[in-house]
Design a protein around this nucleic acid. Structure first.
Lengths: 213, 213, 213, 213
DNA sequence: AATGAATGAGGCTTCATTCAT
DNA sequence: TATGAATGAAGCCTCATTCAT
């Protein structure tokens, strides 16, 4: 089974770090508050209150406030995204025999599920990325390796078979990401949870139109 | 000529508010710092220094730090966006006789220019929107009226002539916005100014594929 | 005619200082605000607003905020109180032939009228006196000279004729002042203007009881 | 034994609030500075310095500067004054068999002791009362209930036995208070501690003269 | 490990005062 | 003389962080 949500990976890393129940509560509270109010507008006192611990406890495991942020974001970009991406690529390879439509549908469902499962983390990531170009660069590198790797090969295969338009791979990946993000942003805009089935159906139709030769 | 950048409209409202040169400098410095470092991580002392004024001067016109933010965002969503939207729609009507491709190209160039001219304001707006749902709702309302108005009519015309796919207008507009934002985000990602001509050419090709019947 | 209220003396000193109408307005506004909100909690901006002048104008005549306070208090303790006291003493001498009851009634009406006419100034004076012992010492000196002067002589006369109890003059004057202040404080407490006729009638009865031999 | 000073009741409430030694030091320093320099002219920095703590410590318990003032005044008017008044009334009832002179002496010693023990709090209370009518109204209500209760009954008894003059009870109480305050104010004026024995002897003589039938 | 009182740097804001127009 | 924009010192308060218990 594909692990796409941060929560489970989180738990894993928490175990690795030997976090106590209270320290996990700190992370949960931080995730919630950072996502809702923003990192800078969340005080460690609020985190402690929501987590039901003393302020000092917050600092036992996470030396600084930035440390808490790191404990949320770092796994997200260093473990969750790559790991999910890897599993994503594995599922790609397993789908190697699919035609373009089936392939796109698999990709899109996979990624929309990821977005849906990690909305709070994504919100925090975007907040930070707006003022920290490094984060975006890391994201960019991940995309590049995605394109250079199995995803790119698969797409090139479809270009050779004439199923896929002859745009640059970078641009094609951009369109796919953009379309996925479009549904994610729309979900946030509407303030409603993502209807993955319906959204992916529509997205496939649109992308197929745009990307079919 | 279409007025798309905030700067000029800004100047207009500055005149209305009878802002002095120093107070305009405060707004310019705030725009720059808020965009680069984020609102919460910008101190009024930094603003004063960059603007070359005393800290007290910052508060002469803009009673509070939030007041400065409001002086940047409010015109953006209450004047700039609607005004730009109106002019955008005027340009739509003037393009009523164009075919779908010419029409899409006009729209996309228009909006990419807007995005390019207002990158700092957009960054600030997105920062704020992440923690203030009201802002997104206002944005959503604007989209709704866009679809209900001339843009929707024009698109329906293309659907009747068989040039445009029979998806819901909401979804079609979402795809257009999403594609435009995709190029905008890519520009931010690459950290480079937007190449409007090249980007719009590509976007038109992609959207035409995706939206042609 | 006895001059007991500060307003008229004020006007006189204003004329001497050649104050413009706007500067008089500043003093009037300051008197009102200092009395109501206290000196420290009144800003020069508020004074300017209430007086209908620019902030700079406040500083044209009264170099500092303390200068405004001085312009209110100094006349009160250096001119108004002594002058009123002098006229008060003159009226005492003119009443030299009165008996104790008539004498007390004259004094009490005179002083209650003074209190009633100068409530705002008294409030400001008391505020300041609470933290500035010098002011109280000046007040004490004035009392001493009152006792050493005509008031003391007149009281001694009543002691010799056996009309007045043989307490120390200081104590007798304290009782008189205390009784007068009692009615003044009661007026403030009740939040109503002083009914001078009724209050003086009662005060005379009480003091006569207490001070008759 | 009658509890008349705020300090002891204070300590009680401090214990209830579980104040630390440092936070008590903050209250002590505030009491001293507010009394000497006035509330508005005392900075939280000064309080912290005198208390020997960091400025942040001042805010740990007393959220705001007004919070410190409330922690001083509220017990004074909501606990100390009523409690002292109650005990005062108990002592009245215990003195029910006394004649008027003994009764007045008991009252006056009791109240002069209270004033003497609470000079700083009284100074702060008066400062605040000058600009906050609510405080005076509360004080007025307390007086009214005093008169309506045991004090009034006892005074009426003396009126029936013909020992006490037939003025209204309100006025009689006013005279008593006024006389007591007169000695209190004189003590402040002279800048010396109150000589309770001497002052009460004199006050009784004066009041007996004024209030005997 | 957990607590929470204590810290002090730094942020936002007010305000008396100045000065060019 | 009058104005009000500008100043900068100082005040109140928050908050990340430390440390004794």
């Amino acid at each position: 089974m594909v692990v796409n949500d941060v929560q489970s990976l989180f738990s894993a890393s928490l175990d690795e770090l030997e976090l106590t129940e209270k320290q996990k509560a700190v992370l949960r509270a931080s995730l919630q508050l950072f996502s809702k109010k923003g990192f800078a507008d969340t005080s460690t006192r609020e985190i402690a209150e929501l987590a039901g611990v003393a302020e000092g406890t917050v600092y036992k495991q996470f030396k600084t406030k930035d440390g808490i942020l790191a404990a949320i974001i770092t796994p997200f970009i260093q473990q969750v995204v790559p790991k999910a991406a890897t599993e994503f690529l594995v599922s790609i390879e397993q789908s190697a025999s699919l035609n373009l439509e089936q392939f796109l549908r698999t990709i899109i469902i996979n990624r929309l599920t990821f977005v849906s499962d990690n909305l709070p983390q994504l919100r925090i990531f975007i907040q930070q990325a707006l003022t920290k170009p490094e984060l975006l660069q890391q994201f960019g590198k991940m995309l590049t390796s995605l394109i250079a790797g199995p995803l790119g090969k698969q797409l090139q295969k479809y270009q050779k078979t004439g199923e896929l338009v002859n745009l640059s791979l970078t641009r094609i990946v951009q369109y796919i990401i953009t379309t996925i993000l479009g549904y994610g942003l729309a979900a946030i805009l509407a303030g409603q949870p993502l209807e993955i089935k319906k959204a992916s159906d529509e997205a496939v139709v649109f992308l197929l139109h745009g990307l079919k030769k």
